[in-house]
Design a protein around this nucleic acid. Sequence first.
DNA 1: AATGTAAATGTAATTATGTTGCATTTATAA
DNA 2: TTATAAATGCAACATAATTACATTTACATT
Lengths: 149, 149
Amino acid sequence: MAQTKNFRFEELLDKHHLKKTGARLRVLSMMYSKNTATSQPDLESVMSDIDRVTLYRILNVFEEKGIIHKVFDLNGTANYAVCHADCGENHHHDEHLHFNCTNCKNVYCLDDLHMPRLNLPEGFKADSFTLYASGLCPKCSKKNASSIN
Amino acid sequence: MAQTKNFRFEELLDKHHLKKTGARLRVLSMMYSKNTATSQPDLESVMSDIDRVTLYRILNVFEEKGIIHKVFDLNGTANYAVCHADCGENHHHDEHLHFNCTNCKNVYCLDDLHMPRLNLPEGFKADSFTLYASGLCPKCSKKNASSIN
DNA sequence: AATGTAAATGTAATTATGTTGCATTTATAA
DNA sequence: TTATAAATGCAACATAATTACATTTACATT
Ligand SMILES: [Mn+2]
Ligand SMILES: [Mn+2]
Ligand SMILES: [Zn+2]
Ligand SMILES: [Zn+2]
C-alpha cells in the first residue's frame, strides 16, 4: 500500500537529516518509480503546483547528499536519476554509461556496464569518468524494426 | 604573416560553400589557435562586437558542416572545439575523450584516445559514443603539486 | 500539547542561454 | 556593375537557473 511505499522515502530523508516535506516525497516517488532519468522540464510540468525555485533547491540538495545525480542529455538539458552506487555527501560514484535515446529522448543509466580502464596522456589526473552513448533504446529499436516504411 | 594564416580559414569556408565574412574568420581563428574547447560565454565576451544571434548562427552552421563539434562541460555549458576526424556535412565522428579540468575549467579533446568497444545490454542500438572525464589537466596538476599548503 | 527555531517554501526580480521573425546589409556570381 | 542569395543586426520571445527576502512549516524541546 501507499503508506508502506512512502515510508521508504521518509527513512531516506531522515538518513540525510532532511525534513520530510510533501514536495520532497513526491520528487523521490516520481524518480524512483522510473527506470530512466527525469528531465528538469518534465519534473516542472508534472509538479507544476510546486514552485520552480523549490524544485531546483530540492534537486540541488538531493544531489549534494548523493541521493540523485545530474546528467545532461544530447541537447544539454539537465536530467536527474537516482544513485545506485555508494554515493554520499559530496561523494559521487556514478561512473556508468548514460544512454540517450534519439527517438524517445529518454536517458538510461546502465549501471551494470563497468567503466573500461584507460590510460590518459601524461599529466592528466582523472578522478571521475562518464560514458555517453546515443542511439535507439530497446523499445524504440523494436518499434523502428516493425514499421519499415 | 597574418595574411597567410587567414588564407587557410578562407579556403576552409570556400570548401563548405560559406561566405568569407569577418565574423566567421575571427571565430575560426580563435578556435584553431587553442588546444582546448571554447565556451559559448567566452566566445560571446571576446567577440562582443558581433551580435549574439550571429554568433549562434555561425556556431550552428560550423557544426552542421562538420568544422566544429559541441561538447557540454560539467556545468552543462556549451563548448565548441574544432573537428580533427573526418567530419563532414551531418557526419560527425568525434568519438574521443573530453577531459574537463575542475580547476581551470578547460575542456580538452583527447583525440588519440580511441574509444573502447563495449557491448550494450540487449536491445540498445548505439550509433555514437562520447567519453567524459574530469580531474586536473597537466598544467593544473603541476601547479597543485608545487603548492602544498 | 504548546512553543521556539532552524529549515523549507513562496514570491519577485534578475541573469543567462538560446530561438524566431523580419528588415537591412554584404559577399559573390554573373 | 548589378542582381540576388546569404549573412548579419535588431527586437521580441522563451526557457533555464539564481538571488534576496518574506512567510510558513517540520520537528525538537519543553
Ligand atoms: Mn546515471
Ligand atoms: Mn571533442
Ligand atoms: Zn527510446
Ligand atoms: Zn586545468
